[in-house]
Design a protein around this nucleic acid. Sequence first.
DNA 1: ATGGTAGGCTCCCTA
Length: 257
Amino acid sequence: MLICWNLNSVSARLEHLKKVIKQNSPDVLLLQEIKCINEKFPHDELGDLGYNIEVFGQKTYNGVAVLSKHPIEDVCIGLEQVVQEQEARYIETTVAINGICNRIISVYVPNGAEVGSEKFKYKLEFLQRLYERLSHLKSIEENIIIGGDFNIAPEEIDVYDAKQMSGRVCFHIDERKWFRKILNLGYIDSFREFNRDMQQFSWWDYRAGSWQHNKGLRIDQILISPKLMDKITKAGVLTEPRGWERTSDHAPIYIGW
DNA sequence: ATGGTAGGCTCCCTA
């Protein structure tokens, strides 16, 4: 099993994370929005649970990590080589599971603030760079898993109110086009593959009782290369942790084999 | 059209 979760601060959510680990004992965890530098990541507590850990951290904002019960190799930090000049949103690793070598990525796509803003422009530029990287990976890797908070709801079924969300950030056509272009490279949206007509969100705003009214978006995805998809038997969202006290605004998502 | 909540860190930014 592989679990992918935007924690909205690893230190505020350490007990939540440990509980999810104890309930599911996943082979691999992909984390986003850890909101800390590498030195402040809870290496000891999570290492004690049997995980190898690779972190691309940053003070206050962003931050991604890969945790694995199996050895982690060939770590690449960031979409560009110049790490100092970029936000901590992308980490790429290799993990062998059951004798199969997998390139495994944790990504946190920029939110984009408002359509038309500078931050939205940055989001689209990030998506282009992500597209180019994933295009390149396709030519050199066979088994690829990319999990993260894409901050894009791909289709109408993935938002609580398609009319209200129309043209707004996380559901704007320019973002959804990039998501579609990535799929068209030959990546499969694992959740949608196993749950063709199911409306299931992965994120609910903290405000206005969104969780209680199930007003959410499916903006977290795990994309898989086709050959590897044959080994996967299920994909879904762990909604229970979203109902816990002082939890993240995202629920963990998973694939199983 | 606006405001609602949360985390980190400093009284504001990002989401």
